[in-house]
Amino acid sequence: MMPELPVAAYLVVSVVLFSIGLFGALRRRNAIMVLMAIELMLNAVNLNLVAFSRYLPGAVAPGQVFAVFVITVAAAEAAVGLAIVLLLARSRRTADVPDVRDLKG
């Protein structure tokens, strides 16, 4: 049988992807770019969940089901987030996060 990779390999990749996503979410001004960076972070989390569901005994069902829920919430977030961005672009002629500061106290 194929030798298994250590779980740490997946965890390190996951950390790298999460850090890149965090960097993008903090750096980008464009709201769609921020949304895409958040998708990156959610995928890193999913990778962690699935890796542990494979390597921890008895964790198969919880890990995979949680990954399914994360995918569900990510899809909903993308749909509503993009709708808000499009609405913003239509009404304000901008898609930049720093330009929308109406709720800032």
Partner: peptide, 28 residues
């Protein structure tokens, strides 16, 4: 911030001893 978070988690992983049988390197 991103590098700090990543380094923090990696240091955390490094401080864990992966001795639980399924988590260590497995032939199969």
């Amino acid at each position: 911030v991103a590098c700090g978070v990543g380094a923090l988690v990696l240091v955390g992983y490094g401080s864990v001893v992966w001795t639980a049988a399924p988590l260590a390197f497995q032939e199969s």
